[in-house]
Design a binder for these strands. Structure first.
Lengths: 203, 203
DNA sequence: GTCTATAGGCAGATAGAC
DNA sequence: GTCTATCTGCCTATAGAC
């Protein structure tokens, strides 16, 4: 992209790839620089060149994850015709993560929250906020066009969606059963698209 | 209870008390024997006398937690008049944990699942199973007496309840906002007690 | 039951050669 | 950019005195 040498190009990204998976599977306190270095066939010192400490590595992990998530939301906005389809696609993003036997990065870091450095804490909260804003806007659109129904504020409904999907991932993983997630997600969406009405539009 | 000497009586329980809180706040990989010993004013070696290793301590933590949870469910069965009240009380148990700024012990351990020794893994799954069985039975009773309504199996509805409450705790904690949990829990229960009906019984 | 002392290992991190 | 070598500290765990 910027004319860098090909030797070692993408080292920083490869480090993030491995570290991301390790955090999603084992948690932030469940992996080490030695784990990442071992998988990549490099030394720990090499990792410290790209990310001075675990805190900086953690920040980079969340920022890249949040960016990718935001891009996925833009894609959903562009490709999904109606609100129910957007919500189904949103749940599908989570399902894709779980299919790789991973927890949502920020869901995992929410569990580790009390042990995280301040910058990582702020980034985790930002992730949930961004998701909440997007969902809130989608739900408001759905209320206007009559495709979704919920009591109370769209904000609260958005937070319920995030909580339910994160919780369904959390609990499904010990069972090694993605179906357990799918069942919960489907029921959640059904409550939004059919609540107090029968014969709602099919997705 | 069994005529033990008073000296040191309850040491094992005190260890569990401190370790339990540390796990609920920091995760299983976020606390050490040194942390527990420090808070109790004893040495690490003393802890190893009661619990040979972290694995055994972890098992004891889950077993005691699951026993207390089961007792709480029995109390709910005894004291709550109807099914909606039972479900509200069930959510209230979670709310009580969150009020102490803790995550559900087994929700936290679900995040740490991949790093846990086999016996702890089995105990975590057992906890969720026991909760599922109780909820399923409560929901079936509610369906019979017409106080709750849900599509699909009571089993799936029970799993949705567990997932939602665990997820709501997980996400609410970084915000330090119990209201965020309450909102999600209230909406979850409303979907069960009022779905496709208006003017449902008040709790 | 609790202590002191210690073992052996792994953690995150740094200095400096190449 | 990656390496070797090393530091310091904390981790789980054990032996043995009291």
């Amino acid at each position: 992209m910027t004319g860098q040498t090909t030797t070692g190009a993408g080292s920083a990204a490869k480090i993030l790839d491995v570290a991301e998976r390790l955090v999603q599977v084992r948690g932030f306190n469940g992996f080490s620089y030695a784990d990442v270095a071992g998988e990549l066939g490099v030394t720990k010192a090499s990792l410290h060149y790209h990310y001075p400490g675990k805190a900086e590595l953690g920040e980079a992990l969340i920022n890249r994850y949040a960016t990718r998530f935001a891009e996925a939301l833009l894609t959903i906005d562009a490709e999904c015709a109606d609100v129910p389809a957007k919500l189904a696609a949103y749940a599908g993003v989570y399902a894709g993560v779980l299919r790789e036997q991973r927890m949502c990065l920020c869901g995992m870091l929410a569990a580790d929250y009390e042990t995280l450095p301040p910058a990582m804490r702020a980034a985790v909260v930002r992730f949930f906020d961004e998701n909440g804003v997007w969902l809130e806007q989608v739900l408001e659109q759905g209320t206007i066009d009559g495709t979704v129904h919920h009591e109370g504020s769209a904000r609260d409904a958005a937070q319920l969606i995030i909580s339910t999907l994160e919780g369904a991932m959390l609990v499904a993983r010990p069972y090694g059963d993605p179906e357990r997630f799918q069942s919960a997600a489907a029921r959640l969406l059904a409550n939004l698209t059919a609540a107090s009405r029968d014969g709602a539009a099919s997705a």
